[in-house]
Design a protein around this nucleic acid. Structure first.
Lengths: 196, 196
DNA sequence: ACCTGAACACCGTTCAAGT
DNA sequence: ACCTGAACACCGTTCAAGT
């Protein structure tokens, strides 16, 4: 009944996709469930996207925007190269339910042609995030704050791993896990590992 | 046509479940696909298990056995507390396709009653593995090899995170990622982070 | 005791028809 | 231009019937 413009619907769909995947997982993302949330009928979704896959892609694009925005808003402004990473880790709480979407989709990838589009989009996304983290670390490596022989891209993946492993544990314990306390310890370990 | 005993079928099903989830993901695990692999009809599966969920559980039980076996066979025998962990990391290659199953299932969990059984089984599994890693680290902490103030359970999760983040990157790049090189760097960082 | 085949509810997608 | 409703192939599961 609502009859919205394609533009608005597409955005609505992308938002709803992220919410459903974040809270209930890919397995529970069904066209009927998605349509119900927008108060339309499942087949109406196909007016705006050609497939479920395309809708997931739209969700990923939105997610990337959101995460990059966090980086942009908290650009390095001090001499400390680790400062922006620390801040990103702290902010993680705010977009935790969003972060869960990323590994959920990544770990559903198969070595299969059907998933190749999804995989490529994930890779671009991941490359952007890791690139951002690497760049920050590289700065610290050059100004002597971090080890000269530090492999900054490996370190960037390790840093991202803090978020992934805390999310994994959070899922497995059904929420009964002190994510903030773990991140604090993991951050201390990370600093020790990369510092001079 | 084959007509095997329930005992043998159950084992066959558990093995096939791990193979399918590991290679093609949970999304591609269908009863028709599973049945075809065993050369029976989908409904025949329900003679041996009451649901798809139960079949996944059986797969998880088998996976736990396999991973614990690796720990058992490479029990600490030197004074170096990090030695068994290093060896586990090296062996990871051998059971890589198995390891992928764990995060795949973990990141499909939802905050949903239907998934509670799966979640609990994952948690027991994860607790066992982390417990094993923690115990090793604890030994090193007591004999003075590692930092006195090391939070061994956080460190154990970080260690497990090396496997998870390398698997994540492997998936995202479609296999175009040097897992062994990354693990080497990540291990160096880990040693630096936990050592005295 | 194990397996097959028909049946049912559900999901992704298409298409003709409504406003 | 956007949405609905019927239709189809596919999946998880049940159940009666086969050997």
């Amino acid at each position: 009944m609502p009859r919205l413009s394609t533009e608005k619907r597409k955005e609505q769909i992308a938002i709803a996709i992220l919410e459903i995947i974040g809270n209930e997982g890919l397995e529970n993302l069904s066209m009927p469930a998605l349509a119900k949330r927008l108060d339309i009928v499942p087949s109406a979704l196909y007016r705006h996207f050609s497939s479920k896959e395309e809708m997931i892609s739209a969700g990923l694009d939105l997610l990337k925007l959101k995460i990059m925005d966090v980086f942009d808003r908290h650009e390095a402004d001090s001499d400390d190269a680790l400062e922006p990473l620390k801040r990103f880790l702290d902010l993680h709480r705010q977009f935790f339910h969003i972060t869960t979407v990323f590994p959920r989709i990544a770990f559903s990838l198969a070595d299969n042609e059907t998933f190749d589009l999804r995989r490529q989009r994930m890779q671009k996304f991941h490359d952007s995030v890791l690139g951002r983290i690497s760049a920050t670390l590289e700065k610290g490596r050059r100004n002597g704050q971090l080890r000269k022989n530090l492999d900054t891209s490996a370190a960037a993946l390790s840093f991202w791993g803090i978020l992934v492993s805390s999310t994994l544990r959070w899922f497995i314990t059904g929420g009964d896990f002190d994510v903030e306390a773990y991140k604090k310890e993991a951050w201390d370990m990370f600093v020790r590992a990369v510092s001079k």
